[in-house]
Each structure stands twice: as structure tokens, then as C-alpha cells.
Nucleic acid binder design. Sequence first.
DNA 1: TCTTTGCGTAAGTCATAACTTACCAATACG
DNA 2: CGTATTGGTAAGTTATGACTTACGCAAAGA
Lengths: 133, 133
Amino acid sequence: MTYAKKRPAAPARPAPRLAHCGADALAALSDPTRRAVFEKLRHGPQPVSALARGMPVSRPAVSQHLKILKDAHLVSEQRDGTRRLYRIEASGLEALRRWFDMFWDDALARFAAHAEAPPKREKAVAMKGKDRG
Amino acid sequence: MTYAKKRPAAPARPAPRLAHCGADALAALSDPTRRAVFEKLRHGPQPVSALARGMPVSRPAVSQHLKILKDAHLVSEQRDGTRRLYRIEASGLEALRRWFDMFWDDALARFAAHAEAPPKREKAVAMKGKDRG
DNA sequence: TCTTTGCGTAAGTCATAACTTACCAATACG
DNA sequence: CGTATTGGTAAGTTATGACTTACGCAAAGA
């Protein structure tokens, strides 16, 4: 969940720095229903009602999910009469993969090196019960 | 968001079928703060307070995020005195990659084949204004 | 042993994501 | 032109996730 407006109990939230890569795609695919829709598209381009058919949610819900997937460049839309064919778009997957490979390579390298160099224990500067920096 | 308990406005929600692969990992990485923590771990194993340092959220918040990452097998924990060293765990990444490569391969194959075979238009069985199947 | 450091967990708050139904626009079709 | 199909969008509801503070326990260190 991303906080934006003011919230009394939590002073602020200056948008934690994050790699602006496959972030949107990750968020988009974090929802089970959205994943289900996305997986349905593996069988080829489909109109909204076909995607909604058999799903436990309403057609408008699927529409809303498709919008999110589209914004994340995970699907693209092609108008065909009154229908709109949705299909999986490579670019979103690609962005995701780039972000992801970063860690993958790292993990492998680190595993290969086998030297983890656990951080030195350093004297903490007296914070009695304080949970905040 | 995953619905579980009853909700008057929405009859039921029988858990949309989904490939039980990197699902947890995707959900875990969908949060910006969690990604930030995860990215910090690229520099090597770190104790909780080191991870929390400089973050816009409290230390307990980071602890909670680490629990989620751990449940998704994205990080592992090693006790060291009063500290607990967290490090990136390959297995979660691997699961994620498997799920992900499924689509990736598909997308490439489909792109290569170039034949999309858009679904035939079929007479819908008269549903006046109904949004549900 | 008494204190400090390190960290997990409980309880409570609040914004919001994921739904719902209703409505509207656009295209196809008779 | 009237009607049905298709699908996007608005408005409203609710469960939940991301926080907070407070507390408690375990290991070090004096």
C-alpha cells in the first residue's frame, strides 16, 4: 500500500526510494485476480467478456484490472468493432525481467564467491527504547 | 487484496485459481518499502536495525516486512548474538523466475509465430445488462 | 546481576485496493 | 433508425495492509 495523503498517526511518508523499473509491473501482478486474467491471456488475445467469463468477479472488475495491467505495460489493447482485444505485451515483462535479473545475478555471484563478509558489529549510539532513527 | 471473510456487497470469493509458484514472492515484492529493504540486502547480510536505518519507517515496520519476505522465501535469517542477520535467499527468486519465464517464453514464441489467431466472434447468449455470468 | 542492545509481537489507526451496481457511449445489426 | 452487444467509468462499500506506539524477551557486557 502506498501512502500519499496526510495521516495523523504516521507523520509523513516521503516515497521510499525505489528502482523505477518493473515496479508497476510487480504491483500489477501482485493481485491474484490480475494474475488470473494475465494467465488467461497466455492462450492468445481475448476480449474483456471472454476474460471475465468463469471468473469469480464481475466484468467491470476485470475491466478495472485490465486498466492497471495496461498502465504497467503488461497488456495492450486493440479495438475490434465493439470489442477490445487484449493481449500480453512484452515490454512490461521485459522491464520486470531487467529489475529481477539484477538480484538474480547478484545472488549467483554472491553464492559463487561464498564470502559473505558479515558486517562488523559497531557500537550503537545509545537510543533508549527509541524505535526511530 | 485478497478477500476471505464474508462481505455483504460481494457474495463470495472462492480464491481465484492461480499458479502457486512465485505468487507469494510477487505479493511480497509489490510493496515499495519491502523492495527498498530487499535492495538494501544486495550489499550483503544485514541486521534489522541496519536495514531500518535511513528508512522512512520505524524498525518494527521493517521487522514486519522482513517476516513477509521470509515467508516468501526471499530472505533468510541467521541469529548472531542479539542480532539477526538477514540475507537474500535464492529459492524465492528462483520460484519467481520460473513463474515468470513461463510468460516470457510464451511471449517470444507467440511473437515468433506471428500468428495470433484472434478468437472468432460468437453469438452471445442474450444477457440484457447482466454483468455477471 | 543489572543494564543495554536488538528485535519480535500485540493492539490500534487509517488510507486504500478490490470489489459491487448503475449508467453511458460506441459499434453492429435488423 | 431502433435495439442489442461490448466495455469503460462513476459512486459507494468494506476488508485489509502498512503503519504506529508499547511491551517483552534473549543475549552481551559492565
